[in-house]
C-alpha cells in the first residue's frame, strides 16, 4: 500500500468517526499543537453537507421533528450511511428504513412512511421523461379484448400505501399551518397515493384503497380484468370508468397492449 493510500485511509476513517483523533501526518501547529479545530472543518463540511442533502429530500420529516432534532438524526444516519456515489440526488434512499429503527422517533410510527412519500417524490422529480397516451388508446381495442389489456406506466409512477393517514400529513405540511390542517385527524385511518411527474412538477395523488389495489395490480403487469377483480374485492363500489379516466388524465399510462391468451 502506498504512503498516500495509507494516510488517505486514516484521514477517511477520522472523518466518519468523530471519536478518532486527528491522523498522524497532518501538520501540527506551532509548539506541536494538534490542529483539532482545523481538522474539524472537514468533519463539519462532510456531516453538514450530507444533513443538508437529506433536509432537501425530506423537508416534511424535518418540519415534523424540528430542524435541530432532524440534524441530530440525519448526522447519525450520514455517519453510518456514507454516500456510495457522488450523485447526491440519489442519496438517502435508506433514510425511511433508518427512521423505522431509530429509537427516539418510535412514538411517530408514521414518520418512516411519510419519508417514503418524500423519497418517491425525489425519484419522480429526477426520473425519465415519457409521453403518455390518452384514454382514446382504449378505442383501438374491441370490447372483448378489454379484459386482457395490460398497461404500461410512466417511469416516474410509484404507488404507496400505509396504515396511517400519511398523504393527509404530507399535504398538511405543504400548508402554512399544518397543525390547523391536521386537527381531528384519525391516526388509525390508512391512506394510499399515486406519485407521478407527468411534466416538470411532481404530483402526490391520494387514491382510495380499491384504486390502490387496481393500480398496483396493473403496475405489476396483470391484465385489466384481474386488476378490477382485486379492486372490487376490497372496495365493492369501485367505479371502473372513473378510475380509468383518472389514470389517463394524470398522464400515468404510456401504452396499452393486448396480451392474447394462447
Amino acid at each position: 500500500m502506498s504512503e498516500w493510500s495509507k494516510l488517505q485511509s486514516s484521514v477517511s476513517n477520522a472523518l466518519a468517526n468523530l471519536e478518532v483523533e486527528v491522523p498522524t501526518g497532518i501538520k501540527l501547529l506551532k509548539d506541536g499543537v494538534v490542529p483539532k479545530k482545523r481538522f474539524s472543518v472537514y468533519r463539519n463540511n462532510v456531516t453538514l453537507s450530507l444533513i443538508s442533502v437529506l433536509a432537501s429530500t425530506y423537508p416534511v420529516v424535518e418540519e415534523i421533528v424540528g430542524e435541530d432534532f432532524f440534524a441530530t438524526m440525519a448526522r447519525e444516519f450520514a455517519l453510518t450511511h456514507l454516500p456510495q456515489s457522488p450523485v447526491m440526488i440519489n442519496y438517502g434512499k435508506e433514510f425511511p428504513d433508518f427512521l423505522k429503527t431509530f429509537a427516539p422517533v418510535q412514538e411517530l410510527p408514521y414518520l418512516s412512511e411519510v419519508a417514503q412519500i418524500e423519497w418517491h417524490r425525489n425519484t419522480a422529480y429526477h426520473g425519465a421523461n415519457a409521453t403518455p397516451v390518452t384514454i382514446a388508446a382504449l378505442g383501438e381495442f374491441s370490447e372483448e379484448d378489454v379484459p386482457n389489456l395490460e398497461f404500461e406506466f410512466h417511469p416516474t409512477v410509484s404507488l404507496i400505501k400505509s396504515k396511517y393517514p400519511i398523504v393527509t400529513i404530507w399535504q398538511a405540511h405543504q400548508q402554512e399551518n399544518p397543525s390547523e390542517f391536521l386537527k381531528g385527524l384519525n391516526m388509525d385511518e390508512g391512506e394510499a397515493a399515486l406519485i407521478i411527474r407527468p411534466e416538470l412538477d411532481v404530483l402526490i395523488n391520494q387514491v382510495s384503497m380499491g384504486t390502490f389495489e387496481f393500480l398496483q395490480s396493473l403496475y405489476k403487469g396483470h391484465p385489466f380484468s384481474l386488476s378490477v377483480e382485486q379492486a372490487i374485492a376490497i372496495e365493492p363500489s369501485f367505479d371502473i370508468p372513473a378510475n380509468l379516466a383518472g389514470l389517463f388524465n394524470l398522464g400515468a399510462v404510456t401504452g396499452v397492449n393486448l396480451v392474447r391468451s394462447s
Binding site: 477517511s12 476513517n13 466518519a16 453537507s49 456514507l82
Partner: peptide, 11 residues
C-alpha cells in the same frame, strides 16, 4: 471518495 464512500467535500 475513498474506500468507505463519498464524503461530499473537497478534501
Amino acid at each position: 471518495s475513498h474506500e468507505a464512500g463519498f464524503f461530499n467535500d473537497l478534501l
